[in-house]
């Protein structure tokens, strides 16, 4: 036996998962499942689509309609699913490399279309699966196997990108603040339109070890100590804020949604179809 949640929503035969000890992928994945459970969604109508990476392996563990795609392309597959069958709740699981590097183009265009998908990006600041190369979200001067003398690339703020590209729900949470993360995902799923939730995560094996970040618990504590809730963030002076990041709901607006707009065209053409 396992917890009710696991019994109900996980494919038990696939467990234990392949993730390293202390990897936060399991924490974020459980937050997604809890959000689905809290919303009381029909398991048969939920579709989980993932790309390629450690984080993307999550789809295989989950007992929904699950699709593990190609590197960076999950959102494009998900777009096909949602557009073809709007009855499905489509949730995309992706990594910082998967979504912000190779999949960047699909990401911005899905934001722009405002298609009703919920994308959860597990941001561990590294390419975990391929062994610790730097990603678009590796902080400057941090180390990675392909940045042995420090990373000179600038940090890519994917939440800002999402807002700029036209997403209508954007939030950031962390693997430490699990309850809040669950709520943010819940709201993202309920939101009509393109929802993006960045889940700051930890990769103790590569990012942690390369950058001397300590144990998995130390890394989670770091998230705890450097996260500032959006409600407090605006009041903080820049000095105090410089090494911190905002968590919470960054954007929640209503804009025309792609699938509904297409339906309107069909209605205007007076086409009858189910």
């Amino acid at each position: 036996m396992a917890s009710e949640l696991v019994e109900r929503y996980f494919r038990k035969e696939t467990l234990p998962n392949i993730w390293c000890p202390g990897c936060s992928n399991g924490i974020v994945t459980t937050a997604i499942v809890r959000a689905i459970d809290n919303l009381g969604l029909d398991q048969n109508k939920v579709c989980i689509v993932s790309g390629i990476g450690c984080s993307a392996r999550a789809s295989g563990y989950l007992d929904f309609n699950t699709l593990h795609t190609t590197h960076g392309r999950a959102i494009a597959f998900a777009t096909g699913i949602k557009f073809a069958n709007p009855d499905l709740t489509v949730i995309v699981i992706t990594g910082d490399g998967d979504n912000a590097a190779i999949g960047g183009n699909h990401f911005i265009h899905a934001c722009r279309r405002n298609i009703d998908l919920t994308v959860v990006m597990y941001n561990n600041h590294i390419y975990g699966m391929t062994g610790g190369q730097h990603s678009p979200t590796t902080p400057r001067f941090d180390r990675a196997t392909t940045a042995p003398y420090g990373n000179i690339d600038r940090y890519f703020d994917i939440c800002k990108l999402a807002i700029g590209a036209g997403a209508t729900y954007v939030a950031r949470g962390t693997a430490y603040h699990v309850q809040q993360l669950t709520k943010l995902i819940e709201r993202g799923i309920s939101h009509k339109g393109f929802s993006f939730i960045e889940a700051l995560s930890i990769c103790p094996t590569y990012y942690g070890r390369k950058n001397k970040k300590g144990t998995p618990a130390d890394m989670l504590k770091w998230l705890k100590d450097h996260a500032v809730d959006i409600k407090q963030g605006s009041k903080m002076d820049p000095e105090e804020f410089h090494d911190k990041f905002i968590i919470g709901e960054l954007l929640n607006i209503d804009e025309p949604e792609f699938v509904e707009e297409y339906q309107k065209i069909l209605n205007n053409l007076k086409v009858n179809y189910k």
Binding site: V49, K82, H106
Partner: peptide, 12 residues
């Protein structure tokens, strides 16, 4: 993306 969307749609 087109190829991906086609596969996604086919899966429905």
């Amino acid at each position: 993306a087109s190829m991906a969307a086609v596969i996604g749609a086919s899966l429905t």
